[in-house]
Design a protein around this nucleic acid. Structure first.
Length: 473
RNA sequence: GGCGGGGUAGCCAAGUGGUAAGGCACGGCUCUGCAAAAGCCGAAUACGCGGGUUCGAUUCCCGCCCUCGCCUCCA
């Protein structure tokens, strides 16, 4: 069955467009994602973005692209320098802690970490070279104090990504009046001259000791790793301006080529309908969610099903609870399907797996349409209801069940939910074994007693025709 | 002020020019030593408001209201 072409919203053109990579064969696709600034534990808003990117990456692969994915870690900026200073640690050591924390959280959420995740500070020479190129082309200038700025006036397209009018930008209210060393108020820094507050953080450059500005790292790193033009570039919506706008300016001024063919931006997550903020006390980390007894898998489900990536996602604890229940429904269904599949040979009824085939086609259509995950989930739950009913009536053959399991696997290659992993503590298992014996002896008083004991340890036990089944409380 | 996203049953959320998926919650039933869990069935009779186009609009156009975001810290 031919698969529809993958189409995604392009925030540059504000239209849903097919993904057409630069690669002539149409196979290899470069994807650059702006990674986190590693000065703290990531919050669920950060990870909403990275879950969406993970879905994107998996979907691209599903639609037969060979994805070359790079994401950098920003390990030098005001916040990392301040954090390192407060902890009394060298910058590198300080950021290493949170780089690892991010990777740990990514694992919790079953994110596929890109094979290349460079740290910005490991590529200072590439940034210096790019800045020099911009100076040579008169797109950048060295200010009196030794910082280097990008000259916006040299780049007429400036504002194209965010559809901003440069004149209104210049007269905007939030311009810092003190930055007199710049030629134009919209000019942004490429190289920051060292100041005492930077401590021992600084690198030598043709313009003296300093550090790179925030935006230059993404241009330099993406060019170094993926070439001067990339197919897809994404990140949180807040990066559109100024970060991505500035990336376009500095990259295209340097190369004369279109920097990015397709822009992918993920809308923000809200908590209880409000923006996350420290003052509201609603900034949750992945660890906070785990501490409430939820699994990373449940959080992943909540983040991928809460809303399409292009819309605000409103995170609530009730939503977390809903996600847990819905996911459990899927798990129960998968268990039934798996059991049925094990009952007979694969060939048994495989030919009549029409529902599974239709389901896969529906999912492909939904996913191809700007990653409509909720559309695909809708089809999944319809399939679940339909086949549960048939299983109740013993109308599903083992081969059909296998086809259903395979259909799920196909969807899950994108959802990335995998299996629920339940680790049963030894003491619970012991009680469970004792209860099985009691039940065998029809000693229901003892059985109930043991069930209570198991519940006291935070687990639920249910009796099925196949024996006891344990569920996390 | 400029630009943009939303307003779909109690909550969350797809989608469509021909009266609208799905999830959660809710009710009934089945199963069960009792439970729990699970499954099935069901109800709600939902498309912000006012115009317009159309045989017909939730879906297109205009206006309005509400809400969220961006306009150089921020995933």
């Amino acid at each position: 069955m031919p698969r529809p072409p993958l189409q995604l919203f392009n925030s540059m053109t504000r239209a849903i467009e097919p993904i057409v990579p630069l690669d002539r064969a149409g196979k290899r696709l470069s994807l650059y994602v702006c990674g986190p600034t590693i000065y703290n534990y990531g919050h669920i808003g950060n990870f909403r973005t990275y879950v969406a990117v993970d879905i994107l990456r998996r979907a691209l692969r599903h639609f037969d692209f060979e994805v070359d994915h790079v994401m950098q870690f920003t390990d030098v900026d005001d916040k990392t320098i301040r954090g390192a200073h407060e902890k009394g640690l060298p910058l590198k050591e300080f950021t290493a802690i949170f780089r690892q924390a991010f990777l740990d959280d990514a694992k919790t959420l079953n994110l596929e970490v890109p094979p290349r995740t460079p740290n910005a500070t490991d590529h200072i020479p590439a940034m210096v070279a790019l800045i020099q190129k911009l100076i040579d082309k008169k797109s950048a200038y060295v200010s009196d104090d030794g910082s280097v700025y990008f000259r916006i006036a040299s780049f007429p397209k400036y504002g194209c990504l965010c559809h901003l009018d440069l004149s209104s930008l210049i007269s905007g209210a939030r311009v810092n009046q003190d930055e007199y060393e710049k030629e134009g108020v919209g000019d942004f820094v490429l190289w920051k001259k060292w100041v005492p507050a930077d401590g021992d953080v600084g690198w030598d450059s043709p313009w003296g000791k300093g550090r790179p500005g925030w935006h230059i790292e993404c241009s330099a790193l993406s060019m170094e790793h993926l070439g001067e033009q990339i197919d897809l570039h994404g990140g949180g919506t807040d990066l559109r301006f100024p970060h991505h706008e500035n990336e376009i300016a500095q990259s295209e001024a340097a190369t004369g080529l279109t920097f990015v063919r397709h822009w992918f931006h993920v809308e923000h997550l809200l908590v209880d309908g409000q923006k996350m903020s420290k003052s509201l006390g609603n900034m949750y980390t992945v660890r906070d969610v785990l501490a409430r007894g939820y699994t990373g898998r449940e959080l992943r489900y909540a983040l991928l099903s809460g809303a399409n990536y292009g819309k605000n996602l409103n995170f609530t604890w009730q939503g977390m609870e809903d996600a847990k229940t819905a996911l459990h429904r899927i798990d129960e269904w998968r268990k039934r399907v798996r059991d049925k599949a094990a009952e007979g040979p694969p060939s048994d009824g495989a030919a009549s797996s029409l529902p599974a085939q239709e389901f896969v086609a529906h999912c492909d259509a939904a996913l191809a349409d700007n990653l409509n995950i909720n559309g695909a989930l809708g089809h999944l739950f319809e399939l679940v209801r339909q086949t549960n009913g048939a299983l109740d009536k013993a109308q599903i053959l083992p081969g059909e069940a296998r086809a259903l399991a395979a259909a799920w696997t196909a969807l899950d290659s994108i959802l990335g939910l995998g299996d629920a992993t339940v680790v049963i503590p030894v003491e619970v298992q012991t009680l469970l074994d004792q209860r099985a014996e009691a039940r065998k002896a029809k000693n229901f008083a003892k059985s109930d007693e043991l069930r209570q004991a198991i519940e006291d340890l935070g687990w639920k036990v249910k009796d099925t025709p196949k024996g006891q089944e344990l569920l996390p409380g």
